[in-house]
Design a protein around this nucleic acid. Structure first.
Length: 108
DNA sequence: AACATGACGTTGC
DNA sequence: CGCAACGCCATGT
């Protein structure tokens, strides 16, 4: 799960559901969020800020400050949000690579 | 062991 | 297109 999140390129986004699907469980979205919450601190190399909900907006229940940090990081990477706090998910959603195909991506 | 809660998703209205 | 309800899996009490 962290590996999948790590290989999300900067400037792109992904949803909990997508990660769950890649992991094999379409309904794993909640656990994905729970797992990311486990990271908590910034002492991780996992770009958790690139993971948002299917609506294309930041949720982060809990510390609002952390949510603001996420939005800030995304803006730095070129991901802009509108007044409604939503972004062009349709355009920025990361097209997951064929993990089991020729690409030979990282050991996912 | 059972109930309630949660960084969510999808379908229905 | 926006809001509400239901479903899912794992964790905590």
């Amino acid at each position: 799960m962290y590996a999948v999140t790590r290989l999300v390129p900067a400037g792109h986004l992904t949803t909990y559901g997508d990660i769950g699907s890649v992991l094999g469980s379409p309904r794993f979205a909640r656990q994905v969020g729970w797992a990311l919450a486990g990271l908590g601190d910034s002492d991780t190399d996992v770009p958790w800020h690139r993971v948002i909900n299917a609506k294309g907006s930041i949720s982060y229940r809990g510390d609002v400050d952390r949510g603001a940090e996420q939005l800030a990081r995304l803006e730095v990477e070129g991901v802009l949000f509108d007044a409604a706090g939503r972004c062009d998910l349709a355009r920025l959603r990361w097209p997951y690579p064929r993990i089991d195909r020729e690409r030979g991506e990282e050991g996912v």
